[in-house]
Every structure is written in C-alpha cells, then in structure tokens.
C-alpha cells in the first residue's frame, strides 16, 4: 500500500472537529508541520475555546456529519483560565444524555489535546476515523429515512 492510499479516507464519512484555538488547533497544526499522517475525513472548525462549544453545535453538526470530536486545552491549561472546566460539565451531561437516547458512544467524542501533542492529535484522528468507520450508517437524526 502506498502512502497516498493510506491517506485516502476509509470511506466518505465526515467527522466534524471543534478545536480550540490555543491548544488543539495548534496541536493539529503541529501534526501537519511534523508531517504526521492522519485520514482526511475530518473537518476542522476552529473555536476560541472549548467553552464556546454549545451542545447545540454538536447536535446540529450530526445532522450532516457522521461523528463529532470536540477538543480543548488540558484542564488547568485553558487560555481563559476556566473555559474548558465549565465546558467539561456541559460535555459530561451531553454525553450521558446522548448515551441515554441510544447514540453510539463513538459518535460524539471529547478530548484534551495540547499544542505540543501533534503526534497524539494524529493518532487520535486515526483511531477516531477507524472507530467511526466501523459504526453502522448514521441516520442523521432520522433524516436519512425521511421524505
């Protein structure tokens, strides 16, 4: 298998990633600069802070994407001191609610990735894409069968 094939998307599944400007986005940047390979299924949305990510964004993204990753600075490292700590409580509740209503846990994921963790970013996207490709077809909140 050549490098190009490896780079190809596992399939055409789309993954939206909300990355905070100060850590995770810079981490993605570092992955690029360091030429760590990861699949192109991911679509990055840069946000000022993981605290900016409203659970609504995640649910709306799932209308047209197969999975969502949200990542910010490690707790304690937030550029705005506590944005990610407040976000953490929202994410806990969102995640448990989504599990509760039967959404596969792999479909909505959260992580903390720092600006220095380019390699971990690439690895994370690799496993994420892998996990998502193994999931069944996402019904996009019922709209696939609708109309």
């Amino acid at each position: 298998m050549n490098a190009k094939d490896e780079m190809d998307a596992k399939d055409d599944r789309k993954i939206v990633a909300f990355l905070c400007n100060w850590c995770s986005y810079a981490g993605a940047d570092l992955a690029g600069i360091s030429r760590f390979q990861y699949p192109p299924n991911i679509r990055v949305v840069r946000v000022p802070c993981s605290g900016r990510v409203d659970p609504l964004f995640i649910l709306i993204a799932l209308k047209n994407a197969d999975a969502v990753l949200t990542s910010g600075c490690h707790p304690g490292d937030c550029h705005y001191t506590s944005g990610n700590l407040v976000a953490r409580r929202k994410f806990s509740l969102l995640k448990s609610l989504l599990d509760f209503v039967g959404v596969e846990p792999e479909r909505v994921q959260f992580d903390w990735i720092s600006a220095a963790e380019g390699n971990r970013f690439a690895a994370r996207i690799n496993t994420l894409t892998d996990q998502v490709s193994k999931l069944g077809v996402w019904d996009r909140w019922g709209s696939v069968v609708d109309d």
């Binding site: 490690h74 707790p75 700590l85 409580r89 448990s96 992580d111």
Partner: peptide, 21 residues
C-alpha cells in the same frame, strides 16, 4: 448552579479511554 461553576477535579466520564491525562 452546577453549570455556572466547576471543580478542578470534576469527573470526566466523557473522555474516551486513553484520552486526556
């Protein structure tokens, strides 16, 4: 109110295995 505040050691049940520190 719980969503107006935080603790440093709040549980993080949403993290996938191997995520975060």
């Amino acid at each position: 109110l719980p969503l107006n505040t935080y603790q440093y050691d709040d549980p993080q049940p949403f993290l996938a295995k191997g995520g975060g520190h």
